[in-house]
Nucleic acid binder design. Sequence first.
DNA 1: CTGAAAGCGCTAACAG
DNA 2: CTGTTAGCGCTTTCAG
Lengths: 353, 353
Amino acid sequence: MLCWEPRPSIWKQHTRIEWMKVTITDIAREANVSKMTVSRVLNGTGQVAPATEQRIRKIIEKMQYQPNLIARSLAMRQTNILGVIIPKIEHMFLDNYIAQILSGVTDVALENDYKIILCPVDLSGKSDTSYLDIARTKMLDGMILVKTKIGDRNIDKLAEGDIPFVLVNYKSRSDQIHYIDSHNIKGAEMAVDYLYNKEHRDIAFMAGSMDETNARDRMKGFKKAIKKYGLSCPDCWIMYGDFSKEKAYAETENLVQSDNLPTAVFCSDDYMAIGVMECLKSHNIDIPGQVAVMGFDDIELSAYIIPSLTTIRQPIYELGKSSARMLLDIISDNEQVENHRILDVELIARESA
Amino acid sequence: MLCWEPRPSIWKQHTRIEWMKVTITDIAREANVSKMTVSRVLNGTGQVAPATEQRIRKIIEKMQYQPNLIARSLAMRQTNILGVIIPKIEHMFLDNYIAQILSGVTDVALENDYKIILCPVDLSGKSDTSYLDIARTKMLDGMILVKTKIGDRNIDKLAEGDIPFVLVNYKSRSDQIHYIDSHNIKGAEMAVDYLYNKEHRDIAFMAGSMDETNARDRMKGFKKAIKKYGLSCPDCWIMYGDFSKEKAYAETENLVQSDNLPTAVFCSDDYMAIGVMECLKSHNIDIPGQVAVMGFDDIELSAYIIPSLTTIRQPIYELGKSSARMLLDIISDNEQVENHRILDVELIARESA
DNA sequence: CTGAAAGCGCTAACAG
DNA sequence: CTGTTAGCGCTTTCAG
């Protein structure tokens, strides 16, 4: 889907789009001043005689004038719009993680008079429209990229351009690239620590999509902790999920069939933990009695499912806020922007482990 | 004169650095044609010689040109952006209802090459910025309004303007105003029918915010059914919630204290049903043994809580899709747009009733 | 089939 | 303090 695909016939568009046409020119004429003077009171730039300003303001209000943001954007080469790039999946806003990020980003954007445009994009890289194309349309002052894949070459191309962007939950090696992440390695270690202290010695791991840095880091943390305690973890206890409940369910089914059950499963995110629990429950395996389960994220559901989920809480909403703040800092040329920030995680102990 | 000399090709000079700033003029110069010809192949309007078109397309691809959408919007007076007006509340995207609407709207918008801009607005009417102002900025081709309040006078003013809009889950009396709703009255009746058939004769009702038409309709349906069966329902069994878990919890607390428990509570939405159940559980009142609970909506959580919630399913995602389709129909001047559509509801029987 | 001229509504830069 | 001129990058109109 290219941006310049043919659009429906022209006359059709014109019949409908009859705007209530109050422009800056109308205000200027009414107030007997030039457009510039009106523009000045609109933007608070330059000086205007108090009397003139009063007169103009009154007319603006009377005529209910609002500046045409498109025209202004074109003139100023700045749109005051931020784009949030999210993977184009089914019902993306029902994904609690994405919803929380969006909440954080939106809250900060609004406070700073920025608008948010949603850009669901096929991140698999198959599609011909990418966020690169979106960047090139000049409609966005900056972008926040969610769930970026490792090895996405477009990131490097984006970095060559001049539109600011921030990656959420992605750990870049390059110092040129701004990102916000949380302490994934440490979080995974905390999970194993907790399980170890609860006398677990046979701990399995459900990994997330290995094309995301946070999935890799969590596995890194898991392995580090396993090694620290000198535990053994056969290959069959390292399962490869994809951050979905369904895949986790299927993998757990295999595990159960193998007849080599661990006493605990640590999952790279909560959705997978829910999948694991559903599978375990279907086999009447007691949680946490026979097998304890831990997750990562602390999504809303985790407190509601039975048994409630013990998990490593990631401050997702804060991740969103933080990334928006960083982006706005870059946009406003704030010299002292750090190129990345790592937020802390926290263990939430509930019933499942 | 030097100033009339053609600018050197930027492509040859700064291959990588400048890719973000390629304009239609650059393409035209490179292809030795006028901007108009490029514009024609971009938009598929007018005729262009096949050979010329090929040449231009190749250059566009080589230079990775994307039209400046802001400039195009200004010239065409059409932005291809839809605004979704949502109440500005804390963590709005975590509201499952809003998330589902958004999913539906986004899916349809994307299919039609429209973008979505998020417009959280203080719907209490106190704030000075309203969706009216947003409409006047001419940045939106149309708007979808979610959770509109009854008696919001701005709606009428909006209707006087010429930006198309659709109300979601709002039943307007005016035929001029487009809206999408679901069968709220019927749904509430279905709930009471179900409870009646399960031998319940003492049924309480937890109403939603009475400034929303769907809350009123659900109460209407409830009362209608109560009357139909000749049941008695004292005032104290009609509780006034606000579609929040917390208020529902508090109201239920009162009910429990009153020592005049019904055998069932029908709630105007699922969040309130969850609040009711939490309160009941805190008093060790068995659900559905002592008191059955029903909700409305069928949000994601409803299947997960214990006991799982029996509820009237509203096709929220479809509501979103439907409203976007209607809006696009209005925008493209489709003559046969209905001015409203009502979607069907469905009873989902689970454990709580 | 192609191009030149004239905006869309606004602001930046420079006069006065 | 205020106005004039010249665009922003694209499309429309009208002429070839």
